[in-house]
Structures are given as structure tokens and as C-alpha cells.
Design a protein around this nucleic acid. Structure first.
Length: 954
RNA sequence: GCGCGCGUGGCGGAAUUGGCAGACGCGCCAGACUUAGGAUCUGGUCCCGGAAGGGGUGGAGGUUCGAGUCCUCUCGCGCGCACCA
């Protein structure tokens, strides 16, 4: 039979698609071995480690229970769990997962006890919308999607501990989400201790003399409370949205229009934690840009609140007062009573420059101060503003609008009478909803004053002489800032601020204040597919409704079965359709809102620690071992924080504020209440970059540039896919996909394969597979390493090549530089491919380096290189990471460039330990160098030991 | 507008504290093996130039013996926030 006859009948082989190596046999083989062995299971303190488990063997813990102190140092490496959509996995998902898997495998080899779990963030709108359309229960859709995601993720060979898998829609999971909600509900934030405390520690003011007053006081302090405030209502989605879910007046999901609407909603008091959420950013290892995004979101600004008296039109002696000083005594008289407007400013040093005041159109004082002549104008403006959506209000903000109310206020520092305007550039929701306008030193006020011809008075001198003070908003020196009672003229901005604040406080006219952009978190949604609130509503003796918590024993509170998942016709959430569920025999009714999708993802990293625990959200010992620094052997040393929490968390930037801020908030509450041992959940966080389509555009169905991982896997295998995702470039960068690049790393894996398996063996193997396709697996098992692979001592050069590779790969994995680690392995393999005799021991060490990145191929070859010694291979997953020997990397003689005036002109070889004088002499004696120096005077010779020689000549 | 980040071959990217720019991979060119090659192996590949040599890290200056790296200005791109007083 002609040897090539078989090939001709395979379209795959004929078309040049011949596999570089039999990954289609190797990958399922490795994966089923890991599954059978439970290779990647992590053990909680007190768990029995099976006698034969490779982790137990490595750490001498097999066959017994290990205490936290006996377990090796932990390494908790976490991926942002996915929302399992119907579309299946996208090539972007596995990028982060591959990076964490490589590190998880690397850290196991380094001897760490690795916790690397995966789960499903499975509540959410798409499954619910599908349910509305088809009547199919969202659980069925969700389960099908999870099955697809799980199959796809598992086909990549990730070393997750699947025994810890969580699913936010599982009653055994959301029971604890509800439990945490009850913790929030039953706690208040004590400003004196700066932390959350059980609601029982709340003290009541003396006037709380009835139970209903006490209840009102208590309900006003809870971390989870009910508010009637205006919220973002999205008609298309049939639900309210959090501030964070609204972008430019449209829903983040689906880009539907949203409107403001007052509704009764559950809120979480995240603002109480604003300062701690901000301050603790300094204790964690996140990228600067991410921290900056969180800081911006929290939006802390320091300044002062200042009271401006309202000048009533009837007030005598307060008419136009050109040079007619109004005394502080007169002002004090004005400020008795409540006729004052409080403004917030970050620049109290510019008080003397306040030439008018602006209120938000919705400000409660507007009616009272508007004069009869202006009333029609003011009303018209307010109506116009109310009609505008917030989108228009911000997008059309290029041109300032506003109207005069006819009212005046008194500037407390100089008694000036200033007009009060209303304008929509002042927001009711920030600060006090009112500002003092300093047009000379605030861009917005400047634009407004210019348009409406309001006076502009300089009160800050810019530090640079020539600079125009008009519109100058930086720090400088106060000028024109002397009043009858106080002067800050001549003071630099920071001193001027503190002096004027001190004076205001003394006079009872204002005080130092800190404001945050952060708002409380709108926590309820009018949906079906989310966690029901464990809350009942009752009415008191006066018929006033009030809420009360279900007991913990009533958890989990399951959502009712429904035939129709739409909201009710009168706009009630879908849960209101279930009358039996809704109405309790004792007359109470259930809360019909559900929690937002963020709820489940706020704490899933804690559930992984003890996923099957039915008595507790997480066992204390497990929590302390995996999250804390209580383990004396822990290698994590965080200088600023007592605790690391999750050692490494990898995910996309899309969660930079929402998920990460919410999770930090919940974690801090749990910390305050003593349920977790660290103040922060995620010590180190890395955002992977976006993978774009081959055209350099963001991948999307409409562009048709989406790459399906299943197809790549079928053609090149999981190892090549993993390797390519890492080889594309730095993890944090965005980069375009290029399938040709996959072929590059695939060829590299083929070269690795051929280092071990020679052509003759391979050909024979392929022919046998072709003849008996059913026997492929056993033919693979019989395949022997090439005769060139021998148990011999390596040469010095071979050892040096290997150890250079160990060094580079080790350092690069530590620094998460996967692309250059792969490049180092390519260099090694290119070199090793030339060796006539390939020392087996050396190749085994190389496989250990390759194993975290291409684990399937490494396992297969590792097994073969032990079989040929008639040994059963030890577990590659737990084989100790090779150390490099620096002594092997030292050169006796080194080549140095000789530069003349910074240009390389020659090279010299000198002993590695040659002193500078010897190197200089050698450089000056170098032939080519000499010819360049002819006719020139040598001014200076710089010798950088081990690097180069530079001769400055002219 | 403000804040953060980034600009290096035809392409993705290397160059860890200022020290031989372009590692590694893709693509391309040539060769070997071959009935064949979209397999594999070998060599080449920043630009100009036959060579010698010269030029070169978005642009313009500067510091330095020496700059992709540091400083100043400027242009371009990406991300975030967006009237937050």
C-alpha cells in the first residue's frame, strides 16, 4: 500500500489542515483525568484530604484532616463570573479566565493552596424577557445557558474547583443574598463609631415617645430603607433603574429612554460609607485609572456651606448700597428666623466675588423669593425645564439659560445685595441645590454672567503675572477681599479658605462641609427574575403602612410560580400577580419588588469559600483561611492593610464602578458586623483589555466580526487558543484578534510536540489512526518519544538555555507578562529543535514551564517522558516549580559594544570580570574603533560595567 | 471641557533602574525536502544605499557621554467623567 494513499482521502490533511499534533485526542484525555482525580479541588480547614490526592501528596496532608495552620499559604484567584447569555461564550471571556488559570496553575506549582472557583451571575433581564415572550420559566432558559457556558469553559481546560460552583439563582445561594439584605435592613450606620451596628444599638431622641415615632426614627436610619424619591423609570424595560444604570438619559441596557418619576423604592445607604470607600482605595492594589474612576464616582469635594440672608423687598436700609456699609449686626438681624438660603461652595475664598446667586429651578425657596413682576417669567422657565428630559438638560447645556427671580440675597462677608436667579445649570440633587455665583473664577458662572451681563469682580490674582484673571479657576492670591469684619486680601488660596471658614463658623454663618456625588443605591426592581425581598408590609392602627423583615428561618423566600411574567396592568411588578403568594393569612402582604442583578454578585466571592454550607453564608474558619492574613505562612504582605482578601481578581473595566463599588460596600457592612475579617474584598485587581475584531473594531454581531471560540478550538485546540489569547499582547491592553496569530502559536505547539515525537513515529501513528479511527486513543498511548530524547546529562549550553528560560518565564508570570513568557519558551524550543540529542530531564523541566499555559499538551508529554523510564508520572499540576540557577547563567567572556559619540562602531570581547581600565584599554585598541577615532581627540571614555563602552571624541 | 492612558517595522508587539531599538509571532522573499504544498525545515526581512555609510520609536525643542525611556511644548488616538458649584 502506498504510504500516502490514506492521506489523499482525508480532506483535512489534503487541504493543508493536517494537525500539528493530536490535540483532539490529548485534550479530552487530560481533562477527563483532571475530573476523575479532582485535581483542582481546594480544601477548607478541617476537610479530609484524600490519601491519593496530588495536593495531599505534595504537602504531606494525604488521608487526614488539615487545620488552617497545616495547610500551605493560600492563594485566592478569582474571575468575574459571567452572565450566561444565550449567545454563548465570546472570545473576550476566556482572556481573563486564561490569565487566571495560568496563574492558578503556576501558584499550585509554587506550593500555594489555590482557590480558583467559577459560577454564574444568572439573574437578569434577558431570561425574563424571553419568559414574557414565550411563557417559559426563566429558570429553564437560565439552566440551558449555564450548560452551554459550562461546556465551553470546561473545553478550555481551566483548573477550576467545580465543587464550589455557585449560581445566584439557586435558592441555596439567594437564601444568603436575602440573609445579607436582612443584615443591611437590621443595621444602621453609627457616625460616632464610623461603622454599621445592629439596629438594637440605635438610641432614640426624647420626642420618640410612641412606637410609631420610634419606628419612623428607626426606619429612617436603617442601611436598607424605603424612599419615595424620584427615580429613573424605564417604560421599555418596565422597571426603575439605579443612577448608575442610566447613561445620558437612556438605559445602560438596551438604550431605552428613561424618565424621572416619584416611586416608593428600597434604597441602600452606601453614602454612609463614602469616606471609607474612598480612603480604603489606598490600601488595595488596583490600577490608578480604576481607582480614579471610583474616586470620581464617589466625588468627594471639600468646601463650605454658607448661609445667605434673603433680602426681603421690604427690608429698609438694604437697598442699593453704594459705599453704604452694612454692619454685621444688621446682617445678624436679617438671619434670625429661617429666611436664609444655604449654598455649597468649594471656594469660600471667593465669597467676596459672589455677584449673584443661582438656585436650581426645583429649589423650595423659589416660590417665596420670586417677586410679582417676575412670577410669570419664573413659572414659564420652570415649566420649560421640567419638560426637558435630563438628556436635553445636559446635552443642550452649551448655552446657559436662566431667569431672574426678582429676589435678592445678602452676601454675608460684605453685605452686598446680590440678585437671585434660577438656572438649570444648578442641580437640585447636588450640594444644597443653590450656589453663590463667582463669575470671575468659575467657568459656568462666567459664561452665565457674560450672557446675562451680570457683574464680574476679580477676587483671585493668578500666580502668573500676565495671566487673565477673568475665568481663572486655579489657586492664587486673594484680592479685593476685605469686608467690614473680615479680610482675606493678600492670602494664598488655601489660607484664605481656612481663614474665611473659621470666620463663618465663628459668626454662625456657615461651616466646613464635605459633599459627595455618590447617591444612595436604588436597590429595588419591578421584575420577576431576581431575589424577592424578605419583607412584609402591614398597616398600623392608623392605617399607615409599615414594613417588617421576615425571620431568617423563613429564608429562602422563593418567587411564586406565574403564568405571565409581565407587570400587572396597573403597573405593579409581576410578583403582584401571585395573589396567594402576595397575601398572607394574617393580612400582611409581601414586598413585590425584587433585588437588582448586582445583589448576587456583591458577595459571590464569599460563597465560593464554603459553597455548600447550609447553615451559614460562609463558615468563619474557611473565611479567615481564604480571605485573611491569619495564616502565618501567608506570603501576602500588604503594608497598608491588615488583610488581603482575594489575592487577585481579574475582569473587565465595565465593572469599574458599579459591581466593584457595591461589592466593597457590602463587604464593609459585613466586616463591621463581624461576618468577614477584612475591610476590603479584593486586594489586587486587574482589568483585562478588550479583544477587538480582525478589523480593529469592537466585536459585534452587526459588524460581523465576532470570533466564535468553538470554531477556533475545533481547528487548533484549547492549548493553542489559550496560548494565543496570552500571546496577543499585554493582558491589560485592548488588541485585535488575528486568526493567523493563532496559527503561529499552534505551530509552536507542533514544534514542542516534535521535540518529543519524531517524524517516523508520528507518521506511523497517523496511519494507524487513519486505518482504525476507533483506536486513536490507544495508538496515542502507545506512541513513544523519539530516539533522540535520551536520559543523558545536558551540555553546559543546553542547561544555560533552559535556565535562561526558567528565569524569564518565572519573572514574567510573576509580573503577568504572559506574552513575553511565551516568547521565551519559543526561543528555547527553537534552540532545542536543533539538538541532535535531547536530554530528557531537561525537557521534563521545560514541560513544567509550559504546563500552566498549555496544560493538556504538557501533561501528555510529561506522562510519555516518565513512561519511557517505566515510571508513573507524578502529578504535573503539583510538581514543584523549577528554580533557576544563576550560576549557570554567568558568562566567562562577554561582548561589549564600543560606541563613539553614542553610535555603535565596534564590539570587543572581554572577560566578564574585567575591570574598567582593562575594558577601556580594549575598547581604545579595537581596530574599527581606532579608525573612527583618527584625527579626533578623546574627551571622555564612559565604561558601563557589563553593558558598553562609550567614547566621547571630537 | 476636565481626568487618566497610549503613540515603536506591512501587522500584533519586545526593549523591567536612561546603555547595541525592533526579541517573539504574523505577513512577505528566497532555498531545501516533495508528485504536490496553504505541511515541515533553513536563511533573509526597519528605511535609503551596490557598498561604505546615513537616517530612524507621532512632531518640535531640551537635559545627558548616551533618550523609545527623563523634562517642556505640540499633534493624534483610546478610555472615563461630563454644568457635581
Amino acid at each position: 500500500m502506498h504510504p500516502d494513499l490514506g492521506f489523499a482521502h482525508s480532506s483535512r490533511l489534503m487541504s493543508g489542515m493536517r494537525r500539528q499534533y493530536p490535540f483532539h485526542l490529548i485534550e479530552p484525555k487530560s481533562q477527563s483525568r483532571w475530573e476523575a482525580e479532582q485535581t483542582f479541588r481546594a480544601f477548607n480547614p478541617g476537610d479530609e484530604v484524600p490519601a491519593e490526592h496530588p495536593f495531599g501528596k505534595r504537602h504531606d496532608l494525604g488521608g487526614r484532616q488539615a487545620t488552617a495552620a497545616e495547610l500551605p499559604p493560600k492563594y485566592y484567584i478569582l474571575d468575574m463570573f459571567p452572565y450566561p447569555s444565550g449567545a454563548g461564550l465570546h472570545v473576550g471571556h476566556p482572556e481573563g479566565y486564561t490569565a487566571t488559570d495560568i496563574l492558578a496553575r503556576y501558584q499550585r506549582a509554587r506550593g500555594r493552596h489555590v482557590l480558583h472557583p467559577m459560577g454564574w451571575d444568572a439573574f437578569g433581564l434577558p431570561a425574563e424577557q424571553y419568559a414574557i415572550q414565550t411563557g417559559q420559566h426563566p429558570r429553564l432558559t437560565t439552566e440551558a445557558n449555564i450548560a452551554t457556558f459550562k461546556r465551553q469553559i470546561q473545553s478550555l481546560g481551566f483548573s477550576y474547583d467545580w465543587s464550589r460552583e455557585v449560581n445566584t439563582t439557586d435558592p441555596d445561594y439567594f437564601r444568603w443574598t436575602q440573609w445579607i439584605f436582612l443584615k443591611l435592613y437590621n443595621s444602621w450606620f453609627n457616625p460616632a463609631t464610623n461603622r454599621a451596628e445592629p439596629i438594637e444599638t440605635l438610641t432614640y431622641p426624647n420626642d420618640c415617645d410612641t412606637e410609631s415615632k420610634r419606628r419612623a426614627h428607626r426606619d429612617g436610619k436603617r442601611l436598607a430603607y424605603v424612599s419615595e424619591a424620584p427615580v429613573w423609570w424605564c417604560e421599555a424595560l418596565g422597571t426603575v433603574l439605579a443612577n448608575e444604570e442610566v447613561i445620558d438619559g437612556r438605559s445602560e441596557r438596551g438604550n431605552h429612554p428613561v424618565v424621572r418619576k416619584p416611586m416608593r423604592q428600597w434604597m441602600l445607604r452606601i453614602t454612609a460609607y463614602a469616606e471609607r470607600l474612598l480612603a480604603d482605595l489606598d490600601t488595595i492594589d488596583w490600577s490608578d485609572s480604576l481607582k480614579e474612576m471610583q474616586r470620581n464616582w464617589i466625588g468627594r469635594s471639600e468646601g463650605a456651606e454658607v448661609d445667605f440672608a434673603i433680602a426681603r423687598p421690604t427690608a429698609a436700609g438694604l437697598t442699593e448700597s453704594a459705599g453704604d456699609p452694612v454692619t454685621a449686626a444688621c446682617l445678624a438681624e436679617q438671619l434670625t428666623g429661617t429666611d436664609k438660603i444655604r449654598v455649597f461652595t468649594t471656594r469660600p475664598d471667593t465669597l467676596f466675588g459672589a455677584t449673584y446667586m443661582v438656585l436650581a429651578p426645583e429649589h423650595p425657596w423659589v416660590d417665596a423669593i420670586t417677586t410679582a413682576e417676575q412670577r410669570a417669567t419664573v413659572e414659564a422657565y420652570r415649566t420649560e425645564v421640567a419638560k426637558k428630559s435630563d438628556l436635553e438638560r445636559t446635552e443642550l447645556a452649551k448655552e446657559k439659560t436662566g431667569v431672574f427671580t426678582g429676589g435678592y440675597a445678602i452676601n454675608p462677608v460684605n453685605g452686598e445685595r446680590i440678585p437671585i436667579w434660577i438656572a438649570d445649570y444648578v442641580l437640585i440633587s447636588y450640594g444644597t441645590g443653590a450656589i453663590m455665583a463667582v463669575p470671575a473664577h468659575d467657568t459656568r458662572d462666567f459664561e452665565f454672567a457674560t450672557k446675562f451681563e451680570l457683574p464680574i469682580v476679580q477676587v483671585v490674582q493668578p500666580p502668573v503675572e500676565q495671566a487673565d484673571w477673568r475665568g481663572f479657576t486655579g489657586d492664587g492670591t486673594s484680592v479685593n477681599s476685605t469686608g467690614p469684619e473680615v479680610s482675606i486680601t493678600g492670602l494664598p488660596t488655601s489660607e484664605a479658605k481656612s481663614k474665611i471658614i473659621a470666620w463663618l463658623e465663628e459668626q454662625g454663618l456657615g461651616q466646613k462641609t464635605i459633599n459627595y456625588k455618590l447617591r444612595d443605591w436604588l436597590f429595588s426592581r419591578q421584575r420577576y427574575w431576581g431575589e424577592p425581598f424578605p419583607i412584609l408590609w402591614r398597616k398600623d392602627e392608623d392605617g399607615v403602612p409599615y414594613h417588617e423583615a421576615l425571620p431568617e428561618s423563613a429564608l429562602p423566600l422563593l418567587p411564586p410560580a406565574l403564568d405571565d411574567y409581565k407587570p400587572t396592568s396597573d403597573g405593579q411588578p409581576p410578583l403582584a400577580r401571585a395573589q396567594e403568594w402576595l397575601n398572607l393569612p394574617d393580612g400582611a402582604t409581601r414586598e413585590t419588588n425584587t433585588m437588582p442583578q448586582w445583589a448576587g454578585s456583591c458577595w459571590y466571592y464569599l460563597r465560593y469559600l464554603d459553597a455548600a454550607n447550609s447553615g451559614c453564608f460562609v463558615d468563619g474558619d474557611a473565611e479567615q483561611y481564604w480571605m485573611g492574613v491569619s495564616n502565618p505562612k501567608s506570603e501576602i504582605r500588604n503594608p497598608k492593610s491588615a488583610a488581603p482578601g482575594v489575592d487577585l481578581y481579574v475582569g473587565g473595566t465595565e465593572h469599574a464602578v458599579l459591581h466593584l463599588l457595591y461589592a466593597r460596600f457590602w463587604h464593609k457592612v459585613l466586616f463591621d458586623l463581624g461576618h468577614v475579617s477584612t475591610a476590603e474584598p479584593f486586594y489586587k485587581l486587574v482589568n483585562q483589555g478588550l479583544i477587538m475584531g480582525e478589523d480593529g473594531q469592537k466585536m459585534s454581531k452587526s459588524r460581523g466580526n465576532v470570533v466564535n471560540p468553538d470554531e477556533i478550538l475545533a481547528e487548533y485546540g484549547a492549548d493553542a487558543f489559550r496560548l494565543y489569547e496570552m500571546f496577543m499582547g499585554p493582558l491589560q491592553d485592548s488588541k485585535p484578534w488575528n486568526t493567523k496569530g493563532v496559527e503561529g502559536v499552534y505551530r509552536f505547539l507542533g514544534r514542542v510536540w516534535r521535540l518529543f515525537i519524531d517524524e517516523a513515529g508520528e507518521k506511523d501513528f497517523e496511519q494507524r489512526c487513519m486505518a482504525q479511527p476507533g483506536e486513536e486513543a490507544s495508538f496515542l498511548a502507545e506512541l513513544k518519544p523519539a530516539p533522540r530524547v535520551q536520559e543523558v546529562a545536558p551540555t553546559a549550553a543546553q542547561l544555560k538555555g533552559l535556565h535562561a528560560c526558567i528565569k524569564k518565564v518565572t519573572e514574567d508570570l510573576d509580573g503577568m507578562r504572559f506574552n513575553t513568557a511565551i516568547s521565551a519558551m519559543m526561543v528555547f524550543v527553537n534552540e532545542a529543535g536543533k539538538w541532535e540529542i535531547r536530554p530528557a530531564g531537561l525537557l521534563r523541566t521545560f514541560l513544567q514551564l509550559l504546563a500552566p499555559l498549555a496544560p493538556h499538551l504538557a501533561e501528555e508529554l510529561w506522562a510519555k517522558l516518565h513512561e519511557h523510564l517505566a515510571q508513573v508520572a507524578p502529578s504535573l499540576s503539583y510538581a514543584p516549580w523549577p528554580a533557576f540557577d544563576p550560576a549557570l547563567l554567568v558568562e566567562d567572556e562577554i561582548e561589549l559594544p564600543v560606541m563613539i559619540n553614542g553610535k555603535v562602531r565596534d564590539h570587543i570581547r572581554v572577560p566578564a570580570d574585567a575591570d574598567n581600565d582593562a575594558v577601556q584599554a580594549a575598547a581604545l585598541a579595537a581596530e574599527r574603533a581606532k579608525s573612527f577615532l583618527e584625527g579626533k581627540t578623546i574627551k571622555k571614555v564612559i565604561v558601563v560595567p557589563g553593558k558598553l563602552v562609550n567614547i566621547a571624541a571630537g
